[in-house]
Simulated scan of single mutants.
Amino acid sequence: MLPRLNLGLRGRTAANAGFATGYALVFRGRPNWLSARGLGYGLASASMVAAGYGAAVAIPAVRDRLGTFDGRAPDVPFGEWVIVHIPIGTVYSEELIFRATLDPLLDNTFGPRSGSLIGAATFGLWHIHPARAAGDSVPASIAATAAGGLVFGLLRRRTESASAPALLHCAVNAGGALALHIVARLMPARSWSN
């Protein structure tokens, strides 16, 4: 439904965050954002991802391979996309919906093992439309995001907080965008629209 509204990125970010907040309120989501354990695990996980992206950009062969990927800067300034739309429109919204609300409901209904598999599969299926819109392989996108959902769910279960998966999720998404942006600046043949 949301793509049909033609809200633009700013409108979609606001709609996603509003829906996620309402969903969590209705279904009694428990994000526990300020958990020391969640923040600690999240910062450690995000640091590992950041180090991986840093190495990828620093190693010439890997950097050259990254240079073959298409950067997907949307119709807003790049900084706004990385600082606002990825953390709020994607990470906050998805972590509040999936890890803070849906995963606990599934765990209580089906048990942690089945709940984690159902939650991860649902997270993967959630990414069908974005994969189609980007022209990506739908099966590969579902598999990759479902695997990410398993890791994010494990972090939420271990810390009892959505902070850990949110920080890791943000590092993966924003870090990937930043890495491609840096590579594009280092390789003059590539250009970004913003």
Rank of each mutant, 00 (worst) to 15 (best):
M1F: 15
L2T: 14
P3C: 01
R4C: 09
L9D: 00
L9K: 01
L9C: 01
R10Y: 06
A14Q: 10
A15W: 15
N16F: 15
G18I: 09
A20W: 01
G22Q: 11
A24K: 07
L25I: 14
V26H: 13
R30H: 10
R30G: 04
P31R: 02
L34S: 13
G40P: 09
Y41F: 15
L43N: 06
S45A: 15
S45Y: 13
A46L: 00
G52R: 02
G52C: 02
Y53A: 10
A56Q: 04
V57S: 11
V57T: 12
A58L: 11
I59C: 08
I59D: 02
I59W: 10
I59R: 03
V62M: 09
D64E: 15
L66D: 07
L66T: 07
F69N: 07
F69Y: 15
R72C: 00
R72P: 00
A73Y: 08
P74M: 08
P74Y: 05
V76Q: 00
V76R: 04
P77T: 00
G79T: 05
E80L: 15
W81K: 02
V82I: 15
I83C: 11
H85T: 05
H85V: 08
I88L: 15
G89D: 01
T90D: 07
T90C: 12
V91R: 08
E94K: 10
E95A: 13
T101A: 01
L102V: 13
L102F: 08
L102W: 05
D103K: 06
D103L: 15
D103N: 11
L105A: 05
D107Q: 10
N108T: 08
P112V: 09
R113L: 14
S114A: 12
S114Q: 04
I118A: 04
A121S: 13
A121V: 13
W126M: 09
A131K: 05
A133R: 09
G135T: 11
G135D: 07
D136N: 11
S137G: 05
P139G: 00
S141T: 11
A143M: 11
A144N: 08
A146K: 00
A147Q: 03
L150Y: 13
V151M: 03
F152M: 07
L154F: 12
L155N: 04
R156A: 07
R157P: 06
R158Q: 02
T159R: 04
T159A: 01
E160V: 07
S161T: 07
A162E: 09
A162L: 14
A164I: 14
P165H: 03
L167Y: 07
C170Q: 09
C170R: 00
V172N: 00
G175A: 14
G176Y: 04
L180H: 08
L180M: 12
H181K: 14
R185W: 03
M187D: 15
A189P: 03
A189N: 04
R190W: 04
S191C: 08
S191E: 13
W192L: 14
S193C: 03
